[in-house]
Design a protein around this nucleic acid. Structure first.
Length: 171
DNA sequence: TGCACGATCTCG
DNA sequence: GAGATCGTGCAT
């Protein structure tokens, strides 16, 4: 097992979203214990022209981290109660991210954020350097399937139907 | 300075 | 099928 480095995250979001399936997400808690999860579901958000991507509204304080180099965490609060965990991908000034929708038996991005006890302090956390959350390589998966992304009807037909949701199919 | 809304989940 | 619950962006 090896920790995924920034090289991995510099690829485009669709590639990273697909390759993250089956990889390990490791969370080290404040008491020193850690929990390992298998990533089972992801979604890719691809740049300013992707109407479903938060960066499509332009560069703001909230989306700033999306414009940095791949490998950092982008978290934000949705519906006033759920922290969504995203991984920034791509190169500088190329706003892309992968949303972690499922880990192990936990499905749904809201529940993932709650399980991992995510909060604002994880904004801009570096996944290659952090001691509380990181990703590890794992054996290649056997198969996966794709589906349209969830909860983005407002993005318009061109974007809401993109098959950029990746789901691990267990062997 | 205020206001409507959202990459969701849970409960009835 | 509706409520919980609040930061953000955009309109005053």
């Amino acid at each position: 097992m090896s920790i995924l480095t920034s090289t991995f995250y510099k690829q485009d979001a669709v590639t990273v979203a697909e390759k993250l399936l089956g990889k390990m997400l490791v969370r080290q808690w404040e008491d020193g214990t850690s929990t390992r999860y298998v990533i089972t579901e992801t979604e890719a958000y691809l740049g300013e022209e992707d109407k479903a991507c938060h960066a499509s509204k332009g560069r703001t304080k909230r989306t700033e981290v999306l414009y940095s180099e791949g490998g950092c965490i982008y978290v934000y609060l949705i519906y006033g109660m759920y922290w969504m965990l995203n991984v920034v991908t791509g190169t500088v000034n190329n706003p892309q991210a992968v949303l972690i929708r499922g880990i192990d038996a936990i499905t749904g991005s809201g529940k993932v954020g709650r399980e991992l006890k995510m909060d604002r302090s994880f904004y801009n956390e570096n996944l290659s350097l952090s001691t509380r959350i990181w990703m590890e390589d794992a054996a290649d998966i056997t198969s996966f399937r794709t589906a349209p992304r969830v909860g983005i009807d407002y993005a318009g037909d061109e974007w809401k139907d993109k098959p950029w949701r990746f789901i691990l199919v267990k062997p």
